[in-house]
């Protein structure tokens, strides 16, 4: 394998990992507040079509990403009102959000299918991007790749170093105690869910405007679910989300290059890899019951309403 191939593979791995980082970090914050939102896949799809449609019609991808984040927030708002206000079952409501998002995005996207869009441009940082090997590996990505790293730093810092992060974790561990001390449990949970929605929306837009710059029905192909699995795999820790996302990005890219390495396996079997890997990884992590119990937010998925 030549150095060029290796560099190209690592670069595609980074691109494939970026939407997973956004979606999984958003869901991680939501879950750390004690709310399980299974609607990531549907929210990503709605974000994908919103970002694509607005980006294409206005010609500005910045507006596209804003629209995607807003669409994600709106989707999350439906979920928040139902689960936090009306106390509906979080699993059922999350599934509903995904089914709704699949339908809505397919409906809205019909007229955009097959249209070309100018994808997110790659930055070319002067001087730095010309360094051999390191240049293409570190300094020639699109802006969202750097944003995903910045998001990781921000989430990590917020959760472990700020008062707000401490409050969010307290709400996730024991909403009743947090409420009794006088903290606004509902407001914190709303904020966490909406933040998760915005991240999923952006993740979706990255799929339709950067990774494969076009709209195809159901283009997320289970990435929202993989992001959910990543949060479990990461045992609710941001750094491990980052590592997991790159691992999965690598698996996705490997299938593209496998044929080139002379591995003659039907392409369908290679396409199974990310999904099979998700199952294997989940099994490996869940086998260790202690780790899960220690790290899982104690009130995850359990309804709580301060006035009821």
């Amino acid at each position: 394998m030549s150095v060029e191939t290796l560099i190209a593979m690592l670069a595609s791995t980074t691109a494939a990992a970026t939407p997973l980082i956004f979606a999984a970090l958003g869901e991680l914050v939501t879950e750390r507040a004690g709310v399980l939102n299974l609607g990531v896949e549907g929210t990503m799809l709605v974000g994908a079509i919103a970002g694509f449609a607005v980006g294409l019609t206005t010609g500005s991808l910045t507006l596209g990403y804003l629209a995607a984040a807003l669409a994600g927030v709106l989707m999350a708002l439906i979920f928040a009102v139902l689960t936090l206000q009306l106390q509906t079952n979080q699993v059922a409501t999350g599934l509903a959000l995904t089914l709704f998002g699949v339908g809505l995005s397919a409906f809205l996207g019909k007229s955009f299918a097959g249209q070309p869009i100018a994808g997110l441009p790659h930055l070319s940082i002067p001087l730095l991007s010309d360094i051999p090997v390191l240049g293409p590996l570190l300094f020639r990505f699109d802006i969202l790749v750097y944003a995903s790293i910045a998001l990781y730093v921000a989430v990590q810092w917020f959760l472990s170093r700020t008062r707000g992060g401490l409050l969010l974790r307290a709400v996730g561990e024991s909403p009743a105690v947090a409420h009794a001390i006088g903290h606004p449990v509902q407001r914190v949970r709303y904020a966490a869910v909406l933040f998760g929605g915005a991240c999923s929306g952006i993740a979706g837009a990255y799929l339709s405007t950067a990774l494969t710059p076009m709209w195809v029905e159901g283009l997320s192909a289970g990435r929202g679910w993989i992001a959910l699995a990543l949060v479990v795999f990461a045992t609710w820790k941001p750094l491990r989300v980052l590592a997991g996302a790159y691992l999965f990005g690598g698996v996705t890219v490997l299938q593209l290059y496998a044929q080139g390495f002379g591995l003659h396996v039907p392409s369908e079997f290679l396409s199974m890899l990310p999904y099979a890997a998700t199952v294997v990884v989940l099994v490996l992590i869940c086998r260790d019951r202690q780790t899960i119990l220690l790290n899982q937010p104690a009130s995850l998925g359990k309804p709580f309403h301060p006035e009821l």
Partner: peptide, 25 residues
């Protein structure tokens, strides 16, 4: 687009979950 079916399916489940809240509240 026939995808409108999926839109209606999702709406139906949302409305049901919302209405379900009024069984207990």
């Amino acid at each position: 687009p026939s995808a409108i079916t999926g839109l209606f399916q999702g709406l139906l489940l949302f409305y049901l979950l919302a209405m379900d809240a009024f069984v207990n509240y």
